[in-house]
């Protein structure tokens, strides 16, 4: 436990010094703000840059505030995930390459503490970013479109948090598995995109899958997801994260020898 504390402190300092603690939340907040604002000003924007013929009249349906929140989540699913993958692709692979790992591995290191400290720090920053972004987006949506039930928003955020945790875990395991950061990013993006594709094509046959978390998150704004399905999905996701963590610890200890000096 003590070693975990020391390593967590090291992770904290590292994330502070390479500014990840600042720029990742900044990106999510920007995404959260721009979505409602650009939605609100869409008619004016089209008017000034759209180069439409004189007299064109376009009717835009004003989106519901809930739809705007779901749209923010859509942005996170594209750009947000990309940012998370790029930010954490090198957590372990990059450390092996830069030589930091050599200093660490030369000591009697508990790989459990090592991997978990990295996972903990990455998860904290990712969740912080997502929640700050949702809150910023919620505030703007409230100003421009109308209010959303706060409980719905919290349920929505919690459901999405499970998915973000899973993504962070996948990236870290890929980083432990692959020889360099670029490959780790490619593998984790590949896994995320392919599983989304498979779920999109065949997902109608099973209601329980971590890929459905985004759909369930959005469903809170309507009648709410089927509770049994939702809890099974959440449980499966937690189990999957736990399995991946065990796998990650095992891989990072097995591949410790691949460190370069």
């Amino acid at each position: 436990m003590n070693q975990f504390g020391v390593l967590l402190k090291k992770e904290w300092r590292e994330n502070l010094r390479n500014y990840k603690l600042f720029w990742i939340p900044a990106v999510f907040i920007l995404l959260g703000i721009t979505e409602p604002v650009s939605n609100y000003f869409l008619p004016q924007i089209l008017d000034s840059v759209g180069n439409l013929p004189e007299g064109t009249i376009m009717e835009f349906p004003v989106p519901e505030p809930e739809q705007v929140m779901v749209a923010i989540m859509g942005q996170y699913q594209l750009l947000g995930l990309l940012v998370l993958v790029l930010a954490y692709m090198g957590t372990i692979a990059g450390e092996r390459k830069s030589g930091t790992a050599t200093l660490l591995y030369a000591r009697p290191l508990s790989f459990k503490a090592y991997f978990m400290s990295k996972w903990m720090m990455a998860s904290i920053i990712a969740l912080l970013s997502v929640w700050l972004g949702f809150l910023a987006g919620y505030y703007y949506t409230y100003l421009l479109f109308g209010s959303i039930d706060l409980m719905d928003l919290i349920r929505f955020g919690f459901t999405y948090s499970f998915w973000i945790l899973l993504v962070v875990t996948v990236v870290l395991v890929a980083s432990a598995l692959m020889p360099n950061a670029g490959l780790a990013a490619a593998v984790s993006l590949g896994v995320i995109v392919i599983s989304q594709l498979v779920d999109g094509l065949l997902g109608a046959y099973w209601p329980v899958s971590p890929l459905k978390l985004t759909a369930y998150a959005a469903a809170w704004f309507e009648n709410g997801p089927d509770l049994a399905d939702f809890w099974w999905t959440a449980g499966t996701t937690v189990l999957l994260i736990a399995l991946l963590l065990v796998l990650g610890i095992y891989i990072s200890s097995r591949k410790a020898a691949s460190t370069k000096i």
Partner: peptide, 16 residues
Amino acid sequence: LLLPVLLIQLGLMIFA
């Protein structure tokens, strides 16, 4: 409305 966006953008630029 866009003032916070500009501030964050400026902050990112200064940090970088």
